[in-house]
Nucleic acid binder design. Sequence first.
DNA 1: TTTAGTAGTGAGTAATCACTTACAAATGTA
DNA 2: TACATTTGTAAGTGATTACTCACTACTAAA
Lengths: 173, 173
Amino acid sequence: MTEKQENILNAALKLFATEGYASTSTSKVAKEAGVSEGLIFRHFKNKEGLLNVIREKSSEAGKAMMADIVMTSDPKEVIRKILELPYYIEKENYEMWRLTYALKWQTDNYDTSYSDPVKVVLREAFSKLGYEDPAAEAEIILMLMDGAATAVLLHEPENKLDILMALKLKYKL
Amino acid sequence: MTEKQENILNAALKLFATEGYASTSTSKVAKEAGVSEGLIFRHFKNKEGLLNVIREKSSEAGKAMMADIVMTSDPKEVIRKILELPYYIEKENYEMWRLTYALKWQTDNYDTSYSDPVKVVLREAFSKLGYEDPAAEAEIILMLMDGAATAVLLHEPENKLDILMALKLKYKL
DNA sequence: TTTAGTAGTGAGTAATCACTTACAAATGTA
DNA sequence: TACATTTGTAAGTGATTACTCACTACTAAA
């Protein structure tokens, strides 16, 4: 991965995340990256290829975060880690997550590859804890995580820590 | 509102919701609506004007749904109604909500005008019920609603009713 | 019946789109 | 050094974009 390739990827991530994939032109990406427009096509074949590389990187980052959770055996620990995820997104990864969440609403684009294994682990966790409907509880936790991530990414509530505390209390963590 | 105007609005809503605002051309909207492209600009000035009319209609629909909740006095009833919202979205309104949720991720576009009053009512409700941190609880309910709506709109979980039941149980409704 | 305003169209417009091509510069490799 | 490959650019390409313009058809009031 050369320096200019990374410049292109960084510029594309920034622009796709803030202005949207469809409304970001390849010429704008090139200008932001400080390279000629043709270089984008040399390295990434086409605009979608560029998006796919970014998506793949994001997907890997997501899987890495989930991998730790999937290996956790203590059920309360599993739930705690998932609830904490949105509140420990690092500033430098905001754009990546914004883009990921925005792309969810594109028609073709629904990927369960790294939420499915978590769902399984969650069901086991709630089962161990004696909850009545572990499948429903797993779904609820994921909804909660999704809603929390959306809130953090879009309007960053000022009582973040209070919310997380109240959440933990709910699950007696 | 003439018939052709409504045709344009319906076509635009459908296409904006399924393919995205930026990647839907005015010519595509015109074709879908069965009118000349020029008519769109006669009636709605420009592409953004067309979107704004749709947005305004959606916003009114949203406010109407919230109005009932804001006037409810019984605290448990307030919470129940909000949690139920995503599970009673009518099929005919799916496109409207999909578009609303997708547009949230557009930069300029964060509108709290009809979630703010609900937040106030929720805080009161949790306060009345003796919860320790009503502000955080209100935020959590809204996150839950948001996550549930996202789930329903994007992948329509097959255990919808179980989830809703488990949710109600959590708040002793 | 004249007049005026609105509804509607089809053929334009310049600008921008994603992408290609021809070629030069840099880099590796024998 | 000689040669092959990769990296990079500038100037294109046709297609599509949002939008305009000149015009006709229709409706309603004076």
